[in-house]
Amino acid sequence: MLKIPTIKRLAFFSFILAISLVSCKKDTTNADLKAALTLYASFDNGVDADFALGDTHMYTVPSRRMRDSAKVGLHKPDISITEGKGRYGDGLLFTERSPGNIYYPSTNNIAYSKDNWSGAISFWLSLDPETDLEPGYCDPIQITDVSYNDAAIWVDFTKENPRDFRLGVIGDRDVWNPNPEGPDNENPIFIDRLTGVKNPPFGKGEWTHILINFSGLNTENGEASLYMNGELKGTRTGIATPFSWELDQSNIYLGLGYIGIMDDLSIFNRSLTDKEISTLYTLENGVHSILE
């Protein structure tokens, strides 16, 4: 019988044990995503959020300056639930550009911090920008207490064909543009604060996953990244401009000028890892998969 020296036997068994521990290690990605979730709207059961740490209701206002006129629910005839045509189940369909806004309140649904703010925003879009969108800028999502140019996080399509797709993470306007001249959206100082994609991957009948990842806002080293279909498309670093919110005035606005379908909106209280972003993109049944 072949005898293996004691030291070699110990080394062999240690190697086998290490392999076993690695193979038995449980993948906690879904659980980690669930723990970080602050809001989720599938649009499969109407317009209210399926899960939220804050108010689950969608609201409609005639304009953002008329918050006191907000009504609970969806009250815009050009927006509706489209059955079975979402990325997963039903989706939220926008059919024309019109006055009025819909939103979810930010309080507790966004993990805003005055000191060190991080988070992530995930959703799916289906449209052909060249043929579906009307002239003008279009923001599928915009989160702010004032406007796109003042402490806001958003993505947009530029105003005319061929349209770029851009990420804006814009701090307090009186800091980045204390002496404004002309419209902010044409200001080079403003444009330098954006990251974007030319010829973005959208198409009629196709779905595109959008992920906004941000960390360290309200510090000297803020960072924000845009992912599309699980791939990193652009990053801004060194974001030092403060983001000062009156939180009860901040909202998660959807479909500003947008024409197309949106689905599976989710928001998280921290920035996500590359693995988590890839997982969100490949979930078989959307964010419902991590809630089960």
Rank of each mutant, 00 (worst) to 15 (best):
Y104I: 13
W117Y: 09
K85H: 06
I79L: 13
W117A: 07
I110K: 01
S98K: 08
S98Y: 03
D78H: 13
N101Y: 15
A120G: 10
G84R: 00
N108Y: 11
Y88H: 13
W117T: 10
Y103E: 09
I79D: 10
N101G: 09
P105M: 09
E83A: 10
P105R: 13
T95K: 07
A111Y: 11
G86R: 03
G91R: 01
P99I: 03
T107M: 04
N116Q: 15
R87T: 01
T95R: 06
Y88V: 10
S106M: 13
E83K: 09
S106G: 10
T107N: 07
S113E: 04
G119F: 00
L92T: 04
T82W: 01
T82V: 11
P105S: 12
Y103I: 08
G84M: 00
E96V: 05
N108I: 08
G89W: 02
Y88M: 00
Y112Q: 11
R97Y: 03
I79T: 14
D78R: 07
A120T: 08
T82R: 00
D90C: 06
G119D: 07
T107G: 02
I110F: 04
L92F: 04
L93A: 15
G91P: 04
G89N: 06
D115H: 12
P105L: 09
T82A: 04
N109H: 14
P105W: 11
G91Q: 01
S80G: 10
I110Q: 02
F94Y: 15
